[in-house]
C-alpha cells in the first residue's frame, strides 16, 4: 500500500485554487476550496484529458477538452460526456504541509 507523501506547503495553493503535481509516479491535481484540500487524478475519465488545465467552478472542475465536470470533493462524474468517477486520493495537512496518499485502482 502506498504512504502519505509530502507534496507542498499549504500556502502554495490559493483558496480557491488548484495545482498539478507528480506524486508517487502519478499525476494528480490538488484543490484548495473553502479551507479544505482535495486531490484527484489528473485524468478525465472520458478521454484522458488533463483535468488540472480545466476551470474550477465552485466545487466542480471542468475538463478543458470536452467539458465533462467532476466533483472536486469526491471525483464523481457530474456531466456528460464522462460517466465514470475519476480517482480521488486521501489528503492530510500536517504542520502546514500537504500530504497525499495515492490510491491505486
Amino acid at each position: 500500500m502506498s504512504e502519505f507523501v509530502k507534496v507542498c506547503a499549504v500556502s502554495e495553493i490559493p483558496d480557491p485554487g488548484k495545482m498539478t503535481a507528480e506524486v508517487d509516479e502519478a499525476m494528480v491535481v490538488l484543490f484548495h476550496l473553502d479551507g479544505q484540500f482535495y486531490c484527484l487524478d489528473d485524468v478525465c475519465t472520458h478521454d484522458g484529458g488533463p483535468l488540472g488545465e480545466g476551470q474550477l467552478d465552485g466545487d466542480q472542475i471542468a475538463c478543458p477538452r470536452h467539458g465533462a465536470r467532476f466533483c472536486v470533493r469526491s471525483g464523481e462524474a457530474l456531466t456528460m460526456p464522462a460517466t465514470q468517477a475519476t480517482t480521488s486520493h486521501e489528503v492530510k495537512v500536517d504542520d502546514g504541509q500537504l500530504f497525499v496518499k495515492i490510491k491505486l485502482t
Partner: peptide, 14 residues
C-alpha cells in the same frame, strides 16, 4: 504532449 494524437494516451509529463 497529449494534444498530439499519437500522445493522447501516453503521458510523459513525469
Amino acid at each position: 504532449n497529449r494534444s498530439h494524437e499519437e500522445w493522447l494516451r501516453t503521458d510523459i509529463r513525469m
